[in-house]
């Protein structure tokens, strides 16, 4: 508890515990669930972008893998939803591992383009494999059974997602402050220095890319089951941009920044509902604005102002 970050974890758990009792109606409960889901994906993405310093503009593709695994495998092949979720995560992880070797030879713009291309290819695959995925119209997703318990009410979903969020934050905090996490941050700070102290940087980049892909795929599955329907929009380029914007707004290399970014930008489309169709523009504008005015993001900037030093 001496560590402010563990205080943050306690505060988060407390807020999540009382939230469903104070939210006025199911609209807000639904919003909270989607915020928490996004927060977990953004946490994983921030480990890659903020901590390890590697960009990905294709992460929605991994969400899509999870979402479609949970839709297609139970529907067409009778696979148990939990097994389908696991298979999606394994597939996303395997794909991330397979592409990471050529991809991480690239830096900067080239890395951005390669990950963007990967996301687009996945999106096209989901769109075109209509026999399996329902094409652009999407397909229904059966409900998720946890052992003998079927998740149906929003309350149930809320507790599952809230528990996942707390565990993810706890695990991320642990990871960052470990030999693995220090190596990850070190290769961001100086690739040559980390190589010379013995860090196999290609392996570390791969490990964190795989981990963030697995996070995304699992949350893609959860989203699909929660919504009960999946369309190719889940894996669209714009969704990848949304996720990156959440990382940037909340703050690169900040665990709690990831939560703040996800919460704010999940709420934004609700606020902008009257400007239907301008969402993309709004996200783009926010991304540019933060890059210029507040490049460190909200939470790290605030922490520095308060003199806590991050």
């Amino acid at each position: 508890m001496r560590d402010p970050r563990h205080l943050g974890l306690a505060v988060l758990a407390a807020v999540l515990a009382v939230l469903p009792f104070v939210l006025p109606n199911s609209f807000y409960l639904d919003l909270a669930i989607r915020m928490a889901i996004n927060a977990i994906v953004v946490l994983g993405l921030n480990l890659l972008i903020g901590f390890a310093g590697q960009i990905s503009f294709g992460h929605a593709g991994f969400l899509g893998i999870g979402a479609y695994a949970s839709a297609v495998l139970p529907t067409h092949y009778g696979v148990h939803p939990m097994l389908a979720l696991g298979a999606g995560a394994a597939a996303a992880g395997a794909l991330a591992a397979a592409v990471s070797y050529p991809i991480f030879k690239l830096k900067g713009h080239y890395l951005a383009m390669a990950t963007l291309g990967l996301g687009i290819i996945l999106n096209i695959a989901f769109r075109n494999e209509a026999a399996l995925t329902g094409g652009p119209d999407g397909m229904p997703v059966p409900s998720l059974e946890l052992f003998s318990f079927t998740l149906s009410s929003d309350r149930d979903w809320y507790w599952v997602v809230a528990a996942l969020l707390v565990v993810s934050v706890w695990a991320s905090l642990n990871l960052i402050d470990s030999p693995f996490g220090r190596a990850l941050r070190a290769l961001h700070g100086s690739e040559v220095a980390s190589k010379v102290v013995g860090v196999d940087i290609a392996r570390y980049k791969m490990a964190i890319f795989v981990m963030s892909a697995v996070f995304a795929s699992i949350m893609g599955s959860i989203t699909a089951h929660y919504v009960g329907f999946v369309t190719p929009t889940v894996s669209e380029f714009f969704h990848s941009i949304e996720l990156v914007t959440m990382v940037v707004v909340g703050g690169m290399a900040s665990v709690f920044g990831s939560l703040v970014g996800a919460v704010l930008l999940t709420a934004l489309p609700q606020i902008l509902a009257t400007f239907e169709g301008w969402e993309t523009v709004a996200f783009g504008a926010i991304l540019i604005l933060f890059m210029i005015v507040l490049p460190r993001g909200l939470v790290p900037t605030l922490a520095a102002r308060l003199g806590k030093g991050g």
């Binding site: 220090r182 941050r185 040559v192």
Partner: peptide, 28 residues
């Protein structure tokens, strides 16, 4: 070639990288 995104102490700790258990799952 100092990692300015880390504390001074952490920079030194990175030097011990190869002497540590670098397992991702155990760390998490």
């Amino acid at each position: 070639q100092i990692c300015l995104n880390m504390t001074a102490l952490e920079n030194v700790m990175v030097g011990a990288h190869l002497r540590l258990d670098r397992n991702l799952v155990k760390a998490a």
